[in-house]
Design a protein around this nucleic acid. Structure first.
Lengths: 136, 136
DNA sequence: CGTAGATCAATCGCATACGATTTAATCGCA
DNA sequence: TGCGATTAAATCGTATGCGATTGATCTACG
């Protein structure tokens, strides 16, 4: 069954990342957030959630933990008090740099070549977007 | 990044299953357990965990909930009191039958043809087994 | 100008997941 | 035979995830 294989493959990927991230004190979703903010700092929670496909009920506690760890700040947008703006601290940027090698180390673990990885990623993106289109 | 795409695709699959399973009162992992037992009843927790790649710390509470729902029984193996044997009840078998159409309904949602599904499943299985080989 | 509706984040409840540990039972080897 | 090593399941603590709801803020329309 595809569902089961996809499920277990996702968990295997999760497990493979864990030893790479654990020395940095990061969990897997926290790493995704850090990488996203390192790429584009000052994002709002909404944008971040849309790109990572996570809801506020997941992000709020996750971001609070990252804030408590001193990696980012959560501040209200002065122009719209409903919005929360996320900014990396110096510690957060340093951590993101230390995590820069993680994707390469992971790719090595998979044993797949870059073309295979790209193909697989593209198929999965099609599947995902078909099942759950990104919000408008 | 492959990791993120795989992660979000797995969650999208999870989300796509939810509306199919919710009328049956099943969650997604519970459905996997039910399907596995319907295929091979009387499995031990260890075998089930190996095939679903779940540990006892996840399975124990999950199975207790399914037992509480009256779908299966958990009994000790008389030959080895450490082992727990899982057997579907009549209600469990009935439920499994009612869930028989779920994979087809899901496949339809994906918009992929059977060949594409098979190919994707095979690639994911290779990836998973490379990252996290099944226990001996 | 004012309020109904929309939007965003936060909260609540529940169900996975997993690492680490604990407990109980069996096995293997001297 | 008997005890240490191994195995299986359960338990504990922590971190996601998500559906549903709530509360605060903003927007749009009359």
């Amino acid at each position: 069954m595809l569902c089961f294989t996809l499920h277990s493959a996702a968990q295997a990927v999760h497990s493979a990342y864990t030893p790479l991230l654990e020395p940095l004190g990061l969990t897997y979703p926290q790493y995704l957030v850090l990488a996203s903010l390192a790429d584009k700092d000052g994002q709002g929670m909404g944008q971040l959630g849309a790109s990572l496909r996570l809801e506020s009920n997941t992000l709020t506690p996750l971001l609070k933990r990252m804030q408590a760890a001193g990696w980012l700040t959560r501040s209200r947008d002065p122009a719209d008090d409903r919005r929360v703006v996320l900014t990396l601290t110096n510690d957060g940027r340093t951590l993101a740099q230390r995590a820069e090698d993680v994707p390469r180390a992971f790719a090595e673990k998979t044993g797949l070549n870059p073309d295979q990885i790209r193909d697989l990623r593209d198929v999965l993106a099609v599947l995902r977007n078909r099942l759950k289109p990104a919000k408008a």
